[in-house]
Structures are given as structure tokens and as C-alpha cells.
């Protein structure tokens, strides 16, 4: 059963997260009500940890990206024969490669 404060908490938390994502001090967006303030602040500790984790999460490297594409395009289960044939997008078909003409 949701409490009547629930939407207020959700909105307050969302505002704090917006500030966190913008690199601003989220504490300024905390609600004035002490109980709400305490709860949202404790959730913002988790939000900060998530942001740190996101910053550490590596992006996909090109070699791995190409390897995944090869796996997808040549898989018998996928049967993406045309993609395997054209080898899109890393090796365009011969008819649009000027060097092949």
C-alpha cells in the first residue's frame, strides 16, 4: 500500500537525481520535511554509487564490437545470410567500393 507521501518522495528523489546527473549539489533539492528529507538523502547515497559505477563501466571496444558482429552475422542460428554476404557495416559490398571498380 503506497503512502500518500509516495508521489512527493518520487518527485523529490527525481529532482535530486537530475541535479546529480547535471553535476550540481543535489542537497539543495532535498525536500524541507525532515522525514522526507532523510529518506531521499539515504536513497541519494545509492544514486551516487550508481553514478560512480556508471563512470567506471567501460564502453565497447572496436575489436569486440566487430567480433560480436561477426558472431551475429555468421551464426547458423541467426541465418542472417545477407548480412554475412555483405559484411555490413564494416566491409561494404564490392559494388559500392570505388577501389574495387
Amino acid at each position: 500500500m503506497a503512502s500518500p507521501h509516495e508521489p512527493l518522495k518520487e518527485i523529490a528523489l527525481d529532482r535530486c537525481i537530475d541535479r546529480l546527473l547535471a553535476g550540481e549539489a543535489w542537497e539543495r533539492a532535498l525536500p524541507p520535511d525532515p522525514l522526507l528529507r532523510e529518506e531521499v538523502a539515504s536513497l541519494m547515497e545509492v544514486a551516487e554509487d550508481l553514478r560512480v559505477l556508471a563512470g567506471r563501466t567501460t564502453h565497447l571496444r572496436t575489436a569486440r564490437k566487430e567480433r560480436i558482429w561477426r558472431r551475429v552475422s555468421t551464426s547458423r542460428r541467426g541465418v542472417i545470410r545477407r548480412i554475412a554476404f555483405y559484411r555490413l557495416p564494416y566491409l561494404p559490398p564490392l559494388w559500392i567500393r570505388p577501389e574495387a571498380c
Binding site: T57, T58, L60, K65, R82, I83, L88, P89
Partner: peptide, 27 residues
């Protein structure tokens, strides 16, 4: 059978979303 349009669409979708899907899977 897949169409050329489907394969082009799919390769475009891959280009645009693979990094997000991989990061999500990594988490």
C-alpha cells in the same frame, strides 16, 4: 527470407545500440 532493407535496418540498429546493450550486459 530477409530483405535488403531488413539487413540494412538491422546493421543500423546494431551500430546505434550495441554499446548500450553491451554495457547493460556487463553490469
Amino acid at each position: 527470407p530477409e530483405t535488403v532493407r531488413d539487413t540494412l535496418w538491422f546493421s543500423g540498429l546494431y551500430e546505434e545500440t550495441v554499446d548500450n546493450v553491451y554495457r547493460y550486459a556487463y553490469v
